[in-house]
Design a binder for these strands. Structure first.
Lengths: 221, 221
DNA sequence: ACAAAAGTGTTCAATTTACACCCATGG
DNA sequence: CCATGGGTGTAAATTGAACACTTTTGT
């Protein structure tokens, strides 16, 4: 029996929720889009395997990323090669430059989640579904939205993350008040960022808080 | 590499959150309390393995229980016998009769979570922690509290689940109104249940709803 | 001066909380 | 008829939603 790791790496780019997709260059599913991943090595801890695959397949450094275990998939026929049980990880990344092709020469690129849903190899559609679901919930109950932002970010950046991941519009004023009013969510810096026009926005850093009480309420669908 | 399944089976008994614990009769950790579990069979789906272990070790039938995947544990040295990766499952059970000892003659019994926390074999303390955490959250955002009740239950029973799992007191009147007011949470039956004293309570069945909007608010700590 | 985006103050509605009160049953 | 727990009504307090308005910049 083989044990593998698969990665659903999400980011917010171009006003869309995007996922890092590779094109498979080997059978099975040669030429298909798939989540990056690979087999675990003997004696390797799960988390370490996820970090290693992340680096190998995408060139991304896991250190600044949020990386958490998502679920484990073990259908006996999920891989035509035989029994492969896969531990899926979810990573949330800021809007990074398009990663280079990995060492095993697969083309890696950011792709809007909507445009690949239903087209992935193996049971990766199911994994991606769950990853998106988890990301949406995480925004409600935790401060993880900051994981989609860089080291510093404006209130507008952070609000954009919520708007894209949830697919809703949020009132900038109420949003700002809620975030600033939540102890430890963000820390204002002295710096500001000017854009093309308009009043420059304060830049914030992540605060120490991880859970949100009260939760960010997603307008009931 | 071996793949195993471990089960954190929770129930509410005697005003306490209790977990099903077995006493290990083999090395390693012989004589220690542990979560029920065992090795997966070749070609067996993960969920099926969880159901099978539940039946084998505790005599419980999984069909009426809520059973969900919790997380996967794969520290290289979590089992002294060698590399064992374990998929942990969480089960929520109503207050069932004390299960018989399993087929492999281990003593299985309900034990208050508080009294075993920190004493379990392997990394089962970590698993149990996560299970309790998940159960607490589930009560906030889903209708899973009913999984701790039998086929029918009174508002007091359901409220008792919340009070025990969260360790708080809830106002019976507001609780009742909130539950009844949440579309599809519970369905009233014609039957009532009389207790030693007091007005007989209406018996309810589970409704079709699974998620709670708005959430049950846990009084901020 | 104007447009555009950041941020503040204020009001109204919805929700939660607290608690007085009535209902139905066993002893 | 009293104790006990189930269930309803209602007002105060808290919270969220909407939006007018002021601030600060580039052009």
């Amino acid at each position: 029996m083989e044990l593998a790791v698969d990665l659903a790496i999400l980011t917010v780019r171009e006003e869309q929720l995007q996922v890092l997709i590779i094109e498979r260059d080997n059978e099975p599913f040669q030429g298909w889009p798939a989540l990056p991943g690979g087999f675990m090595r003997p004696g390797e801890p799960l988390y370490a395997a996820a970090v290693r695959e992340l680096a190998e397949e995408t060139g991304l450094d896991a250190a600044p990323l949020h990386l958490e275990q998502l679920a484990t998939y073990g259908d006996p026929d999920r891989d035509p090669r035989g029994r492969v049980v896969s531990v899926a990880y979810l990573a949330l990344a800021p809007n990074l430059p398009i990663p280079r092709a990995g060492s095993d020469a697969r083309a890696a690129s950011w792709v809007p989640v909507e445009s690949v849903a239903g087209r992935l190899a193996f049971d990766h559609d199911e994994i991606l579904d769950k990853a998106v679901d988890r990301a949406r919930s995480a925004l409600e109950y935790t401060t993880l939205a900051t994981a989609f932002c860089g080291e510093t970010f404006t209130m507008g950046d952070l609000r954009g993350v919520y708007e894209v991941v949830w697919g809703v519009r949020l009132d900038p004023r109420n949003f700002s008040r809620k975030v600033v009013g939540t102890e430890g969510f963000v820390i204002p810096t002295k710096a500001k960022r000017a854009q093309d026009t308009g009043r420059p926005a304060t830049l914030y850093r992540r605060g120490p808080a991880t859970t949100l009480y009260p939760a960010m309420l997603r307008t009931k669908e």
